[in-house]
């Protein structure tokens, strides 16, 4: 069931470059939410910005009645959100979308790819997988490929150390780990170490997702890609968050799936990647002008 809930901000802290962690006291939604689902947040009252903003759940704690979102300030909506202090009231709608599934095969190896703020829905999933694999001693066979433009965009690494998983770092500028795109690091590592994963989870910019999808399809790896789109309602009504998709019944025909109700988690083979439009990121200096 989808719920509209008035919640209060428990805390907000800056955890990396332009990256904030927001804890919300959301008893009802936390009980219904699953990993990989998302919520819509009205960042302030009034008509500017007009629309809610979609965020994946970073952490769901049904016992405490708390949900967390991890987000990067990329525009006016997220800037207003970053100004909320403890005790502030927000109206949120959730849980929305389909969420991640645990691997059907396996239990290992498992690959996760996170690009920039794409780490947000991955952390709790990785914890769950690590718990799941701990009895068989295969936690090291969880490979996280974590890429960013520069090292200061990474969230603190402590979280990964305690999990006991294998983390492969990459940055565009070489300030930490491999210099270059995280998808290149993924391909090279998998080929070199002859790893055949039973699933790949991925979240990041569409340009990155395209390369993850291509790699997964070429290597026959089942994939669960958390994709993004601009969206107005999150409920399947506005039809704004369409992605070009493959219609299994008629592959030649134009067909669309919607991130909010068919996703946000898709299999690579569902999307017509050659028709995806990607926009370059807006330079931060222009965000508020």
């Amino acid at each position: 069931m989808k719920i509209m809930e008035d919640v209060s901000v428990v805390s907000q802290e800056k955890v990396a470059f332009q990256t904030h962690l927001l804890r919300l006291s959301a008893g009802r939604i936390s009980r219904e939410a699953r990993l990989g689902q998302f919520l819509m947040v009205q960042v302030r009252d009034g008509t500017d910005p007009l629309l809610r903003r979609p965020f994946s759940f970073h952490r769901i704690d049904a016992e405490q009645g708390v949900v967390e979102i991890l987000y990067r300030v990329v525009g006016r909506g997220t800037w207003w959100l970053s100004q909320c202090d403890s005790g502030a009231r927000l109206r949120i709608i959730g849980p929305l979308g389909n969420g991640f599934q645990l691997p059907q095969c396996g239990p290992a190896p498992v690959v996760a790819v996170a690009g920039g703020i794409g780490i947000a829905p991955m952390m709790q999933l990785l914890e769950k997988l690590a718990q799941w694999l701990a009895p068989s001693g295969k936690t090291r066979e969880i490979h996280l490929f974590y890429g960013a433009r520069t090292a200061e965009e990474f969230i603190p690494g402590k979280a990964f150390d305690t999990l006991g998983i294998t983390v492969h770092w990459s940055t565009d500028d070489g300030s930490r780990g491999h210099e270059g795109f995280v998808t290149r690091l993924l391909e090279d590592t998998m080929r070199r170490e002859k790893i055949k994963p039973c699933v790949v989870y991925s979240c990041g910019p569409l340009a990155m997702q395209y390369h993850v999808a291509r790699w997964a399809l070429e290597n026959g790896v089942p994939s669960q890609l958390s994709l993004e789109s601009l969206m107005a309602c999150g409920l399947g009504a506005c039809l704004g968050c369409a992605l070009p998709a493959v219609n299994p019944a008629a592959p030649q025909e134009e067909h669309y799936l919607h991130v909010c109700k068919d996703g946000p988690v898709f299999k690579a083979e569902m999307i017509q990647w050659h028709k995806i439009q990607t926009h370059p990121a807006t330079p931060p200096i222009f965000l508020f002008s």
Binding site: D48, L50, A232, C238, L239, G240, A242, Y256, H279
Partner: peptide, 23 residues
């Protein structure tokens, strides 16, 4: 009708522009 290719919506001052294409 499949509708228009994305991007289909954009937010503007106190409004939004859509080109869903009657999907």
């Amino acid at each position: 009708r499949p509708g228009n290719p994305p991007p289909r919506i954009v937010e503007t001052a106190a409004g939004m522009i859509n080109a869903i294409g009657l999907e």
